[in-house]
Design a protein around this nucleic acid. Structure first.
Length: 259
DNA sequence: GTTGAGCGTT
């Protein structure tokens, strides 16, 4: 049990932040503490975790008290195999508040720096030279956090419990449901002109691309898409959309063991 | 139960 990260950042005024990458998803601060503590005085260790699942993201932040110790730890622990995986230790570049970080250390406002800022801007490159934006082209874990951080935060990924079904959430799933009310939509027809090419009668080309190669080989559909179900009459006790009612409650007894 | 480039919390 580590007291790290239990009460937020203790003090980042005189501490050097080290970034540990390539660590296993099971590595905790307690596992890195004895490892980093051997090379210096570890002030705090923080490992970002997923807010949804709570699992480690695969990297940790180790704060040292002195730069020499941090530097030593970087050279000594960088490349060390932890939990069967080689970790990468380096100085943190980006701070939590986007503060100026120099060699892992947060450089607070320097009175001398203010004057050195020069009121005259000879060129934008002077202040823009630190635009070290590298190609963060990830494989496929790109939508793991960025989406929830920049977009999901303002929106809501927890309120989605209402309807996580794309078929239902969109309102209009297919023609079976859009054809029926489309007639009564005469009054709303005014704004129906938004999609003239895709109006009823002309289904999407991609959907009818493989009318024969559908997901139904020959037997009954796995989801029960029998003609009767399409008609709006589901003989089976399933949702009106043909989806079993258990989308939001997979298992109330899921969080028991520790995986 | 999975995933692997990256930069952080009360």
């Amino acid at each position: 049990m580590s007291h790290f990260g239990r009460s937020g950042p203790p003090d980042i005024s005189d501490t050097y932040s080290l970034l540990v990458l390539n660590i296993t998803f099971r590595t905790t601060a307690d596992d890195l503490f004895p490892l980093f503590h051997k090379y210096g005085d570890v002030v705090d260790i923080f490992i970002p975790k997923d807010r949804r699942t709570g699992d480690s993201r695969g990297f940790a932040f180790v704060r040292y008290k002195y730069a020499d110790e941090a530097q030593k730890a970087v050279e000594r622990l960088d490349g060390r195999v932890v939990d069967g995986r080689e970790i990468t230790v380096q100085f943190a570049k980006y701070g939590p508040n986007a503060e100026r970080i120099h060699k892992g250390r947060i450089v607070e406002s320097d009175p001398r720096s203010k004057r050195s800022r020069s009121p005259r801007r000879r060129h934008r490159d002077d202040d823009y030279k630190e635009k070290d934006y590298r190609r963060r082209s990830r494989s496929r874990s790109y939508d793991r956090y960025e989406r929830d951080r920049y977009r999901g935060r303002d929106k809501d990924y927890r309120r989605r419990s209402r309807s996580a079904s794309p078929d239902k959430g969109r309102g209009r799933g297919r023609y079976d449901d859009d054809d029926r009310p489309i007639r009564s939509r005469s009054r709303s027809r005014s704004r129906s002109v938004e999609s003239p090419p895709r109006a009823r009668g002309s289904p999407s080309p991609r959907r009818s691309r493989s009318p024969r190669k559908s997901a139904s080989p020959r037997k009954k559909s796995p989801r029960g898409e029998s003609p009767e179900t399409r008609n709006g009459h589901s003989p089976t006790p399933v949702s009106p959309r043909g989806r079993p009612y258990a989308s939001r409650s997979p298992s109330p007894r899921k969080s028991d063991g520790d995986a």
